[in-house]
Design a binder for these strands. Structure first.
Lengths: 207, 207
DNA sequence: CTACAATGTGAACGCTGCGTCATGTTTTGA
DNA sequence: TCAAAACATGACGCAGCGTTCACATTGTAG
C-alpha cells in the first residue's frame, strides 16, 4: 500500500490517470456510458483526446479500468467486514454497516454500476461483468457460509437455503440503500444495522 | 378487450406493429437499447426501415411503446393480485405468486426493464421512466397499505415502516426471481409463496 | 378497368463519435 | 548545452446510425 517512492514523473502520470478516471466516472454516472463521448471526458479532465488514448486503449478499456478499481475496493471492504472474528450475528451487523458506509462514500460509482450492470449489455462488459461479478459472488458465498455456520450452531432457524438467505439479505440491504438515495430524508439508511436486520432476524433467529 | 371487429386491413397493420415490437423487444433485451440499430430491428422484423418509421416516429418512440405496453400488463396483474378480498396474509401470497407468473411469462421484457431502468439514463426515458415508474410506485404503495392494515389489525408486528417493508418484500421477490433466472435448477422460483414469505413472515407475524 | 388511397421500400444524407498520427512541447541524462 | 526520449496535442479520416423522401406496390371503391 506504500507507493510514495516513485520517480516524480511517474507520480504525475498516475495522478493524471486518476484525474481522467475521476472525470469519466462523474460523467458516466450522470449521463450513462453511451451518452458520454471520449472527447467529452478528455475535455472535462482538461486533456487532449490523444492524451486520453495514451492512457486507455479505447472507451471500453477506460470503462473497465474504472469498474475494476472501484469493485475491488468494495470487495475488500465487504470481505474484511465478514472476516472479523465475531460471532455470526455480529458479522451480519458488520456487513450491513460497512456496506452502508462504502456505498455512501462512492455514490457516483454505485449509480454507474446500477445503471450499466444489470442485464445483457453484451458488447460492453460481458467479460468485465465476469470479473466484477466474481467478486460479488464471492461475497455472497461468504455471507451464505455465515448463515450456514449460524445454523449448525443452532443460532439460526433453518428457514431456507443459506445462499438464498444471503441473497435475500443483500437484496434488502440494496433496496434500503436505494431507498435512502431517493428519499434521504424520509428513509435514511439506518445507523443501527438491526433496523435492517430485524426484518430477517426476528424470523431467522432461534427464539 | 374485444377488438375482433376491425377491418381486415387494420388488423394486418396491428399485426405488423406487433411483429416489429416483438423483434425490437428480442433485440433490445439481448443487446441493450444502444447496441441495437433501427436497421437491425427492421431487418429482424422483415420490413424496410421506412416501414418501421411509418409506425414509430423514432427510436425512442418505439422503445416507449414497448415499455408502456408491457408495464401496463404487469401493473394490472399485480394490482389485481392485491385487490382480492382476502385477508392481508393471503394478499401477500397472491402477490408473490402472481409476480412470479407474470415474470416467468415475460422474461425478455424483464431483462430489458432491469437493464435499462435503473440509474440515470438521462436522455432516454427521463419521461418514460416517470410513466412506468408511476405504476411501479403505485404497486408498492398498495403493498405498503397491506402491511399497514395488517398492523392495525394486529396481525403484523410493527417491525418497521410499512413502505419500507413493502420495498423489502418486493426486493426479496425480485432477488429470488433473478436467482431462478440464473440457476433455474438449483434455485427455481418456488411454487409455494410461503417459501419466499417465510423470510419475512416468521419475523413479522405476531406470534 | 381505372383512379385513388394506403402501405411498403431502400438509397441517400447529415451527423456524431471513436480512434489515429504527424507534429509540437517538455523532461532527462550526459 | 544539446540530443534523444517521453509525453501532449487536436485536426482529420472513417464507420455507423438515425431519419427522410421520392418512388413502387398493393388494396379499395366506383
Amino acid at each position: 500500500m506504500q507507493e510514495v517512492k516513485l520517480p516524480r514523473r511517474e507520480r504525475e502520470k498516475l495522478r493524471h490517470r486518476r484525474q481522467m478516471l475521476a472525470a469519466a466516472l462523474a460523467l458516466f454516472s450522470e449521463k450513462g456510458y453511451h451518452n458520454v463521448s471520449m472527447h467529452e471526458i478528455a475535455e472535462s479532465a482538461e486533456f487532449a483526446i490523444g492524451t486520453l488514448y495514451r492512457f486507455f486503449a479505447n472507451k471500453e478499456d477506460l470503462y473497465r479500468a474504472l469498474m475494476l478499481e472501484h469493485a475491488e475496493k468494495f470487495h475488500e471492504a465487504l470481505t474484511k467486514a465478514l472476516e472479523t472474528p465475531d460471532d455470526e450475528i455480529e458479522k451480519l451487523r458488520h456487513y450491513v454497516r460497512v456496506k452502508g458506509e462504502v456505498f455512501g462514500g462512492n455514490l457516483s460509482f454505485v449509480q454507474l454500476f446500477l445503471a450499466e450492470s444489470r442485464g445483457a449489455r453484451v458488447n460492453i462488459k460481458a467479460r468485465l461483468d465476469e470479473e466484477v461479478r466474481k467478486g460479488y459472488d464471492e461475497t455472497l458465498e461468504r455471507l451464505a457460509s455465515v448463515f450456514k455456520r449460524g445454523m449448525t450452531k443452532k443460532r439460526f432457524k433453518r428457514i431456507g437455503d443459506p445462499y438464498a438467505l444471503a441473497v435475500a439479505l443483500d437484496s434488502v440491504v440494496n433496496a434500503f440503500l436505494l431507498l435512502s438515495l431517493e428519499w434521504p430524508d424520509r428513509y435514511p439508511y439506518p445507523e443501527d444495522p438491526d433496523k435492517v436486520l430485524d426484518i430477517l432476524f426476528r424470523g431467522v433467529l432461534e427464539t
